[in-house]
Design a protein around this nucleic acid. Sequence first.
DNA 1: CCTTGACTTAGAGTATACTCTAGGTTTTAG
DNA 2: CTAAAACCTAGAGTATACTCTAAGTCAAGG
Lengths: 142, 142
Amino acid sequence: MGYSIGQVAKKTGLSVHTLRYYEKEGLLPFIRKTSSGLRVFSDDDINWLGMIECLKATGMPLKGIKQYIDWYHQGDSTLSQRLAMFQQQEQNIKAKMQELNTNLAKIQYKIRLYDAAVKQGSLDKAQQEPEFRAARLRLFGH
Amino acid sequence: MGYSIGQVAKKTGLSVHTLRYYEKEGLLPFIRKTSSGLRVFSDDDINWLGMIECLKATGMPLKGIKQYIDWYHQGDSTLSQRLAMFQQQEQNIKAKMQELNTNLAKIQYKIRLYDAAVKQGSLDKAQQEPEFRAARLRLFGH
DNA sequence: CCTTGACTTAGAGTATACTCTAGGTTTTAG
DNA sequence: CTAAAACCTAGAGTATACTCTAAGTCAAGG
């Protein structure tokens, strides 16, 4: 039920430095401390770290995550702000996925091109092939 | 055919500061300068900036992009390194897309949950509903 | 010719997110 | 009881990617 900072570091893959930094930034406001000052993480705290990872991995800065935690702290009066935040984040994720898809196509063109170039020992020769000229025009517009 | 740094900034959405910074970091080694020192960007340079954006948007640090440009500069002897780099980048993109998908599902759960919470005026009440308990267990494991 | 705006370099400053160090305290295993 | 491992705080240092400033040069319109 109670974990030390080192145990949490192992569990989450974050360093103890990072965990202390997150607490200092207000991202872990629920952590208890023993009378002698040692942090004691609960299962709830681990779950919070999971949510922090989720928001971080989808591009939210720590300040944005802190805002969410502050709203959570303020209780049900901030439900609509939190809903709006998640809706915005959904849009951000979808836009990022779109962008990744577009750029994946460009990278995959480069893989096909360089595959041909390696086989022929020349990038110029490969680039001259009609197949690659057409794909380049379609993907890069030149 | 030749563009000033200001024209390129408008074209690409990057600032003139950023363009100079990229040149300083070795990301734009082909740019010509007039006898009086002004940068003249060619269409090829604009295309390079497009590739830089593509690699940057898919998570490659500027150092990695510089490595690619250095390999390009060295000619056909580095074709296989460049191929390997693009293949690695493809894997990175696919992993990132996977991660985004997983986290999108979590965010969308939160949207459904907060939507219900806003309607009821209480997060606790919404969280108690069997539908949300089940989804939470599936997505977050708790 | 002159002013205005865009350009130049070198170097300093900023934001974000860690990451580490120093010096000290607490816990745990033998 | 003691030594090693793990913990603590405060604050400094690092990496990345810009972003801006100062002081000056260049180019185009009137």
